[in-house]
Amino acid sequence: MQHALLMWKNTRMIVLTAVCAAIYAATLIAFKTVVPIIPGVTEVRVAGVFPMTFGFLFGPAGAWGLAIGNVIGDIFGGTLSPVSIAGFIGNFLMGYLPYALWTTLVPVSSGAYVWDAKSVRNWLTYIVIAFISGAAAAVVIGAFADAIGMVPYAIISKIITINNFIGSLIGILLLTAVFDVTKNQLRLFWPEVMDVSAANTGMKASFGAWLVAAGCILGVFGGFVPGLSWTVVSWLATCLIMGGSLLL
């Protein structure tokens, strides 16, 4: 979590945040009216191809960028509401988890912070993390939207998870296409921009990573267990995800 705060002292990271937010917002707005799945809460988000790439390449700047971009999408889409607050947190997680889990979710992750399209291991890590980060956002947003009476959790959490996951899978094309030019020509790969030398590893971080993963699995499937209500599931899962994220 420390990089997510430290980055606000780095001009380039601040600008990256703004640029990511603007791309995300512009795409959200451009495609907002096309197919609203649940109007005001979510739509077929083609913008969903961006979060994994932003999070992986730009780290905290990607996370804040997605959070801010989503708010701007609400502002210009005319759907500013209390859910925008949950949207802020959820979209932040979609950018935060990709870089935070990449090195910590052992044994899925290899511990090295690189993207190599030829490595099967990298693909596996990407897919697992894409699911977790998409589900984490879905659980947090869903719990909140249900509580204030916007949409039932049982529906919204699944729609957002699937939507984010499909977007992220297509996003592999994007990440593969732009990784090299972003790192080596534009020099915007975040560990280099922020001079982060050591990857974040260690027991505490791995524990946090698995806490988040457990929260996501519970949040998406927990309600199918007889006797567990979706409301209880949603808040329990949210606590796990938020707690785990703070440990990362």
Partner: peptide, 24 residues
Amino acid sequence: RFKRFAPLSIPIFISAMRYTNFLA
């Protein structure tokens, strides 16, 4: 819909990122 967006998202990303260093 997602798949067809890929040839669009890459130029959107690259042309925006070329701004970033200038902005900073």
